[in-house]
Design a binder for these strands. Structure first.
Length: 177
DNA sequence: CCCTGATTCGC
DNA sequence: GCGAATCAGG
């Protein structure tokens, strides 16, 4: 791929918006994150604060006021994810922090734990995020599940079952997908 | 292991 | 100028 003026413009914009090099690479397409970082340097664009190595992963301190019943055995892990997504010409940055028990909800009829979608955009998907599509692709709220998928499988455990289970076994789950 | 950006250096 | 390889940190 070639660094056209247009692509450089986009690079500058996204970089200043705070997107990570890999995210920018994903949006530009055809380039690696290294290419993006290299270009950023060559352009003498401002780096990401803190010399010597690493960049801030914003951490939210927001507390939830919910008193939802905590599931007994799923409460050990807390996930924080900073997501930047393009909305038209701007980029919405949102911090998503979810306790494990909030990532789960119970299907009333079954005893199956359903992961709550992390609502990732297409460009946020990686080798190990669930690629199960959620919603209408033609609508604004379309997104992908984005939960961790074991062993680089295309789907998380739950959606893998929906994807691979025989039709007669998913009649119930279909409604909840 | 996942991710992040920074630097180097052969091309 | 480019970017893969490598380094360094979380």
């Amino acid at each position: 791929m070639n660094w056209t003026d247009e692509r450089v413009e986009k690079l500058k914009r996204l970089w200043s918006e705070g997107l990570s090099a890999s995210q920018i690479a994903a949006q530009l397409g055809g380039v690696s994150r290294n290419a993006v970082i290299g270009k950023v340097h060559r352009l003498s664009l401002p780096g990401r604060a803190k010399a010597g190595g690493t960049v801030a992963t914003g951490r939210s301190t927001t507390k939830r006021t919910t008193s939802a019943p905590r599931a007994p055995n799923y409460a050990s892990r807390v996930t924080t994810r900073t997501v930047a997504r393009a909305v038209g010409a701007t980029v919405m940055k949102e911090e998503i922090e979810v306790d494990s028990f909030q990532e789960m909800e119970y299907v009333p009829a079954g005893n199956v734990v359903v992961p709550i979608s992390r609502r990732l955009a297409l460009t946020e998907l990686t080798e190990r995020t669930c690629k199960w599509p959620v919603g209408d692709p033609l609508k604004e709220d379309f997104h992908f599940c984005g939960c961790d998928s074991p062993d680089s499988s295309p789907y998380c455990n739950y959606h893998a079952r929906l994807a691979y289970q025989p039709v007669h076994d998913r009649r119930r789950a279909a409604a909840r997908a």
